[in-house]
Structures are given as structure tokens and as C-alpha cells.
Computed example of a mutant assay.
Amino acid sequence: MYSIADLQTIIAQTLLQRDFPTEPSNLYDPIRYFLSIGGKRLRPVLTLLATDLFGEKIEKSLSAALAIEVFHNFTLMHDDIMDEAPLRRGKDTVHKKWDTNTAILSGDAMMITSYQLLSKSQTDNLSEVLHIFSKMALEVCEGQQLDMDFGNSPSVTEEDYLQMIRLKTSVLLGAALEIGALIAGANPKDRKLLYEFGVNMGIAFQLQDDLLDIYGDPKKFGKQIGGDIIENKKTFLLINAIRLTKGKEEEKELKGWIKRHANYNVDEKINAITSIYNKYGIKTLAEEKKSFFSDQAFQALEKIDVPANRKQVLITFTKGLFVRES
């Protein structure tokens, strides 16, 4: 059995050893730079944990785990362009350090590299591994498009939002786990349960992020508290606030803040909308929904037919993420 720290170290060291070509430098230097600026490597760790869960050596799924991590970083590089983000993990984003065209092309090269890595997986079921990965990759794109569409949509429901985060965030966690299990030789039933565990876990994580953006400790969160409010981002909290204030006196105030794009005090906006959240119990609603999905995740994990002691590292890892403050 491996510890989480052991697996994170293995992933980080193997990524640094990845031999990218030197030329053209403006294609590969941004990739080396982006992969070197850190990250918790949670998704590839899940792939290795899934393989270990079913008693197989993690070396068999290491290439697939790297594919998951490179693909994830490709999506981040392109997300930064779409979000016009200046920083990623406290460092300049690629499109700021180089330029937008370079970031697009380097991101494309990362996506292709992820498939190259995946093709080296030590398994007799490579076609199925590729199918799971490709389905996930397309769903992530669908989720990102929905997220962008929500910005201009006058009405986004809670169901719409949960579907968006399932696609944009959660299916990658599910696929990371399912691929690790498939390489380990797990049966279809257990693979499906592990996928469900990952997807439900991912939704709960995103709901936790929505809560942390408003109610997190600024010293631990690592980002500005209230950033989602400033950006009018349609999170679980805002969507439910819009729903619950309909026809109430706070509806006008909430919509007034959403429509204001300039000439306002940021702290005043954050405090005003947070007060509405507090009055209508939005925090409790989000916590209850997070608990629902985390419960669904652990129920799926419990049904997997492996000894309970083999699940403990995955359980501890997941519970630690559910109570994180940053």
C-alpha cells in the first residue's frame, strides 16, 4: 500500500523526467513551464490508487496516470485563455508569459501527448481505455461550453448547474479511477461503482469550492474571498438565491448587483449578496447538497468487492479533500 504523498512524489518526479523535444522551443518550453509550476496531482493519484485498490502494481497504470495529468493541464491552459486569467498557481499563465497563439498550440500539443502516454498503458484492454478517456475528454469540452453559455443565460437551474460541473469537473475524476481499475483487471461492476464514486466525489468537491469562495478562510483559501460574486458567476449559491428571492424584496437588490459591471465597491457587493445568502439559508442548502453527493460517493465505494482495508487510503484521501479549506 502506498501513501498519498508517495504517489504524488512519483507523479511529480515522472512528469519532470518527461523528455519533451527541445525544438521548436516556443511549442515545448511552455509545456515544460506549465507542468513545473506545481499542483496537487490529485487526478493521476486517483488512477494509481484505483490500480492499487485491486491489488495490481501501480507501475502498470503510471503512463495512464500521466496521461490524465497532462490532459488536465491542457484543459487548464486553454481555460486560462478563455477566462483571460493572468495567474495560475501564483505564476504567469502561458498566454501572458508568451502569447495566446502559443498557449493554444502548446495546449493542443499537450492533449496529443496525453494520448501518446495513454497508448503506452500496460493493458490488454487498450481500446476500452481509449474509449473511456475519449468519452471523458469530449464531456469535459461539453461542460466547458455549458459553463461559458451560462454567463449569457438569463435562467440557469440547479439541475443545469449540477450537470455542467459533472461534465466539466467530475467525469475526469471518474475516468481517472475507472481507467486505473480497468488496467488492474477489475470487473465491470466494480469499475462502474468506482466511476460513480469519482463522479459524485467531484460534484461534492465543486460544491465545496462554491462554499469556500464565500465562507472560506482568506488565509487558507488562496484566492480572493467572494471572487465568484464579483464575477457574477452562476454557482449553486447564486442560482438558488435567484430562485428563492423571486417575488421578494431582495430580488431587486440581487439583480441590481448582478447588472452592475462598473463603479461599485467590491466589498459592498460581496457583503450585500452574502447577506442575502445568509438570510435565505443558501449556505445550508449547499452544504446539504454537498453531503448528498459525498454520501452517494461513499455508498458506491462501499459496494466495491475488495477488502475494506484496501479502501482505507482512498477513503482517508477523499475525506481530507471534503474538509479542505483551500
Rank of each mutant, 00 (worst) to 15 (best):
D6F: 06
L7N: 07
Q8T: 14
P21K: 10
E23R: 11
P24D: 10
P24I: 06
S25N: 07
D29R: 04
I31D: 02
I31L: 04
F34I: 06
L35A: 02
I37L: 12
R41H: 09
R43T: 10
V45A: 14
L49K: 12
K57C: 00
E59D: 14
F74M: 05
I81M: 04
P86G: 05
R88H: 12
T93F: 03
V94G: 09
W98Y: 15
I104P: 11
L105S: 05
M110Q: 04
M110L: 11
M111S: 12
M111Y: 13
L118Y: 02
Q122W: 00
T123F: 02
D124G: 06
L130S: 09
M136G: 11
M148E: 12
M148F: 14
D149Y: 03
F150G: 10
P154G: 00
E159A: 14
Y161T: 05
L167G: 03
G180F: 04
L182C: 03
L182V: 04
A184R: 10
N187I: 12
N187Y: 03
D190I: 06
L193E: 09
Y195T: 06
F197G: 05
F205P: 01
L211S: 12
F221V: 04
G227D: 07
I229R: 03
E231H: 12
F236G: 04
L238Q: 05
A241E: 09
K246S: 14
K246Q: 15
R260Q: 15
H261S: 14
H261N: 15
A262I: 09
V266K: 15
D267E: 15
I270L: 08
I270R: 10
T274Q: 13
S275E: 13
N278T: 13
N278H: 13
Y280K: 07
A286N: 11
K290G: 13
D295W: 00
D295A: 14
F298S: 12
A300F: 05
E302V: 01
V306C: 08
P307V: 01
A308L: 10
L314H: 06
E325M: 04
